[in-house]
Design a protein around this nucleic acid. Structure first.
Lengths: 154, 154
DNA sequence: CCTCGGTAGTTCGAATTCGAACCACCTTTG
DNA sequence: CAAAGGTGGTTCGAATTCGAACTACCGAGG
């Protein structure tokens, strides 16, 4: 570990861009969601993942895995969503320890209401700013990056 | 705003990749820094920015602007760094309200100590995973994304 | 059947975040 | 010079985050 391979100018540019963009985009979206529909970005993500399931429900652990949050963070957010009536908890019939988070009708409705604005913001801040080539490169590159991190760290 | 332009599969892939990568990479780096040298990622960024200045000092506001944090967040982190002896506050001679954050010798030393491990982690998790084309696309694309967000929202 | 190791989720405390309110000061204008 | 408005930073309270400890339970081995 004596000599370090420092970042080249190009690499530094990519790193700084990535760092700044990830903070700023996240911030902007969080803002938009909170202003327009009283949801935090993490909460929105939970709703999306539940809505993607055929039954509209998912085990807490599965939800935590696919998601950014720690397990305890998930517990917190699901509790918030439950207070807001957007999600309901259901204990798993075959395993008393297990808990499903279930999307309620209100939750589904709220998501439907929130989605257009959210997608528009994602476009405005990120997607529509990129050229098609950049878009593909990001999908491929960052997809690889995240799947590696998921594999090891998690 | 009646009909929404939803994301295509490719766009969704890019968005998900971006979202996951930004969370996971940030997390991994924060972890590495905390484990190896008792610094949070925001703290490390502050040190880097100070070290990049010829005098090793910067006004609080300038620091906050170039950085991810809100002003109050910056106050907090600088206070932490001050407690750790890595940074010192100095009031601006020509404007009593103004405050410079000044990198101390200890701060410079800590940064020098932390940098190799940090760079290695950035390489391992992000840079070295990308092809040169992806790297350039990310530098260009996300650079543009972040400068636009800086311009408007900030 | 009973114990043991592992798993599911929650709870706890500490750290960090943000925006809004605030204070002190600068600077412009009349 | 005095008033008014803007700026630089900090303080405040509320929300959110994390990991570690904890509780309760499942399932395998003996």
């Amino acid at each position: 570990m004596s000599d370090t391979r420092w970042l080249s100018a190009e690499e530094m540019r990519a790193w700084r861009g990535f760092l700044a963009a990830s903070a700023l985009v996240n911030r902007a979206l969080d803002q938009q969601l909170k202003d327009d529909c009283d949801l935090s970005h993490p909460q929105y993500e939970i709703l999306v993942r539940l809505a993607a399931e055929p039954e509209g429900e998912l085990r807490m652990t599965e939800l935590a895995n696919g998601l950014v949050n720690s397990k305890s963070g998930l517990t917190y957010q699901v509790t918030q969503l439950e207070k807001a009536g957007l999600v309901r908890r259901r204990t798993c019939p075959t395993d008393v320890r297990g808990v499903f988070a279930v999307l309620t009708e209100a939750g589904r409705a709220r998501l439907a209401e929130a989605a257009p604005g959210h997608v528009a913001a994602v476009r405005a801040h990120l997607i529509d700013v990129l050229t098609p080539e950049q878009l593909t490169a990001i999908a491929d590159g960052l997809g690889e990056v995240s799947s590696r991190l998921r594999a090891t760290g998690h």
